[in-house]
Write a protein that binds this DNA or RNA. Structure first.
Lengths: 243, 243
DNA sequence: CGGCATCTTGATCCAGCTCAACCAGCGTGG
DNA sequence: CCACGCTGGTTGAGCTGGATCAAGATGCCG
């Protein structure tokens, strides 16, 4: 598979062949992170931008009482920390859900890229805005959606995001999170996630087995979740990929 | 009061007198919006960046079933929609809580500003990142904090943000939201907000009367809320203002 | 084959919701 | 200047989604 970052950015702004080459050049040698370990710790002050090339990760906050809140999910092509080289220190950690392959773009390389290509600069900017929109939508989910709606919404979102980077197989995609992870993300117990999953299965909407998710009735699932792709801000290219 | 946007940006990056003047110049004539009306509707495609000069506003999503989720609060100095001129259409609305005085910076004026002053460019960038961090913290609140913790956290955050722009009077600050608004923001009923407020009052932590909030014991409130200012990413200037 | 992580299931409990009044302040028009 | 109506705050009673606690069941990996 080619660079998933290029694939993703292309969903926001059409990139030239030249842009893709620059992007590939800017990426320094990648490193591997084992599943269930931290990519970045809270309090770290790193210097380069990490990009997920393969695997899933999550931003999370850990509380003293053991409770963990997953704040967002990072999929292939997602930059982990576009901010980091601007802010003083991390206010959260990033952990690998599966084994993760990371690419890195140094601060200078990044400045060079965006200076050279306005397309790329625009694409990075839109990417950041779309990420913010996704974050807002999570806020909406946690604040206003019921358990089953939340989970349904998450599945809709994940499928759409994976589709945009070409990682779906029809209505099927990867779903490597444990029920515990899902609970941490949805602000619920794994016990309750379990029961909610059974309900979704019982309604014939999804199958989730051996870390693969199949959405049997996308329209019905989206209706249940009050899911509307608009907030993902995918352009034609992104939607075409999703089809 | 001088420009609250300058005040706020100065909390992220020290600005020169020149920077402040440029900023003031870039701001086109301001407009007034009545309380309880929309500043921007969902689906709009506006061209300029709105900045709150006076008053409070909120981003929100309205559901068909009448439920409303407030996704973030906008205080004086906050840009409403740094994104808008990049994305296709609004995925949420922005509504005025109090009467709001808006300034506007056009896209070209913005580009001009950031091209002329690297300090300003940096400040805007950090502002955006701090906003994202606040959004993540809301996700944490809705996902992991109990009712009383959530409300306590909101009060801590608001006081800190207002302090950074010089709008506090010791431990007292404005709090113009109705219990209904608070409910929409915290993903709870106004009835339950009411009872939670009584609990906070009963614990002697706060007074909230005639739209003014006083925090009697900031340390205790922060402890209850698991509040840690780090995520606001205020620099020395911001913290000094907060003191 | 044994050990550990994950998933299931059951029983009980409680934070927060719903529904339904009722009260208080305040702006408006007669 | 008062009566009225409206918005926002308060209170009570009963209900429920999801938490908690506890035990198994399943399945994967060394």
């Amino acid at each position: 598979m080619p660079n998933p970052l290029a694939h993703k950015l292309n969903c926001y702004v059409g990139l030239s062949e030249d842009d893709r080459m620059c992007l590939a050049d800017a990426m320094s040698p990648s490193r591997m992170v084992a599943a269930r370990t931290d990519i970045i710790h809270e309090g770290d002050d790193p210097r380069a931008i990490n990009v997920i090339l393969e695997g899933w990760a999550c931003r999370y906050r850990q509380f003293a009482n053991g409770r963990r809140q997953v704040v967002s999910l990072l999929l292939p092509g997602d930059p982990c920390d576009p901010h980091i080289f601007l802010l003083d220190e991390m206010d959260h950690a990033i952990g690998a859900i599966t084994p993760v392959l990371l690419g890195q773009i140094t601060g200078p390389a990044m400045r060079d890229l965006t200076a050279r290509s306005p397309q790329l600069a625009m694409a990075f900017h839109r990417e950041a805005l779309a990420t913010a929109a996704i974050q807002r939508e999570w806020t909406v989910s946690l604040g206003s959606r019921t358990g089953i709606e939340r989970l349904a919404h998450l599945f809709c979102e994940l499928h759409a995001r994976l589709a945009a980077i070409g990682l779906t197989d029809g209505n099927t995609c990867a779903m490597p999170m444990t029920q515990n992870d899902l609970g941490d993300a949805m602000g619920q117990t794994s016990v309750h996630i379990n029961r909610t999953l059974q309900e979704l299965r019982g309604m014939g909407l999804i199958t989730l087995r051996s870390r693969r998710l199949t959405i049997h009735d996308p329209a019905a699932l989206a209706r249940l979740a009050h899911f509307d792709t608009a907030y993902l801000h995918l352009t034609e290219a992104g939607h075409a990929a999703a089809r």
